[in-house]
């Protein structure tokens, strides 16, 4: 009989069990946590974060890291608002064109990120951190520090139109998650991500064009950041140079807490979904049971540390920078 309580099984199911335990805990302290309205609130908070986290999941699966999300989300959100205004300010007047353009722009920024990382041979965390700064800088430059907004009821339906109590944006995020899962599980690119993350030398020796795969991964991440930016604009109704702030810490915490190993090759978008929900439930639950919100950053910090420690097989790591 196969052992059920192996290390692998524990790691695989721990995030999900943690999520369930958290829901039980918060419901026990305050039963109103368990209401449909509150779940809708959690889902709205989690939808843009999920898109950012899904984007960075591909990168982490490859064993790299992307810290550019704050800058990319801010820049694409601001650009999206400007484009929307340029095309008449509503989806119906031609503003819908802004959506595909912004998705392409997001992918292009990601590609630049990948180019800098791969061609200049700069470690990804620093290349992406620097480009994130450039993105935020560009957003500041474009807005001059102001808020950009447009008023289109059709576009805001993403937030206001509810199906079964959940707004449309939650379903959009869900669809994009399925798309990400499809890429991960059923495309060659998805398998190459795991090949590169599992062992770059071996992947290279097997004929995988590692450099192209890395660049494609960063472009794909940028694409998902752009989706996040659009959802965030739908959620807030406006964009500014700080629209993307907090996403970096939150998304990386989510991905790691969900069980995607920082060393690459392990985990996937479903882990990320669980991780994003854990973080969203904690953030929401702390408010519901009356804890002050300044604890959030510290709790996220502790969470990511614990998750990394638990998921690291210490025998296989020589040294850490």
């Amino acid at each position: 009989m196969p052992r059920i309580l192996t290390r692998e099984n524990a790691i695989r199911w721990a995030p999900f069990l943690v999520l369930l335990a958290l829901i039980v805990l918060f419901s026990a302290i305050n039963p109103s946590f368990l209401s449909q309205r509150n779940f809708a609130r959690i889902a709205i908070a989690a939808a843009p974060a999920l898109m950012v986290a899904v984007g960075v999941t591909f990168i982490i699966v490859m064993g790299s890291i992307d810290l550019s999300m704050e800058g990319v989300v801010s820049l694409t959100a601001v650009l999206f608002c400007f484009l929307m205004l340029a095309f008449g300010g509503t989806l119906a007047s031609g503003g819908w064109i802004a959506i595909p353009i912004i998705l392409v722009v997001g992918a292009a920024i990601g590609l630049v990120n990948g180019l800098v990382h791969v061609r200049l041979k700069i470690p990804s965390f620093m290349a992406s951190l620097a480009l994130g700064f450039v993105g935020t800088g560009a957003a500041i430059l474009l807005t001059g520090g102001d808020i950009v907004k447009f008023d289109d009821p059709t576009f805001r339906a993403l937030l206001t139109w509810r199906i079964l109590g959940f707004p449309l944006m939650v379903y959009v995020a869900g669809l994009c998650l399925v798309l990400a899962w499809f890429i991960q599980a059923h495309t060659r690119l998805g398998r190459y991500f795991y090949a590169v993350g599992g062992g770059e030398d071996l992947a290279h020796a097997s004929g995988v064009r590692v450099q192209q795969v890395r660049m494609a991964g960063f472009a794909l991440a940028g694409f998902f950041y752009a989706i996040a930016a659009i959802l965030q604009v739908a959620k807030l109704g406006q964009a500014e140079s700080v629209t993307g702030s907090n996403f970096m810490f939150m998304s990386i915490t989510s991905v790691v807490v969900g069980g995607v190993a920082l060393w690459g090759g392990i985990g996937g978008v479903w882990n990320t979904l669980v991780g994003v929900l854990i973080v969203a439930v904690i953030n929401n639950g702390m408010v519901v049971i009356g804890l002050p919100d300044f604890l959030q950053a510290a709790v996220l910090g502790l969470l990511v540390i614990i998750a990394v420690i638990l998921s690291t097989d210490r025998r296989s790591v020589a040294f850490v920078k």
Binding site: F125, L262, V304, I305, V308, I309, T312, V320, K321
Partner: peptide, 8 residues
Amino acid sequence: MYVPSFIS
């Protein structure tokens, strides 16, 4: 604890 420095 083998947590990479940028995360820790």
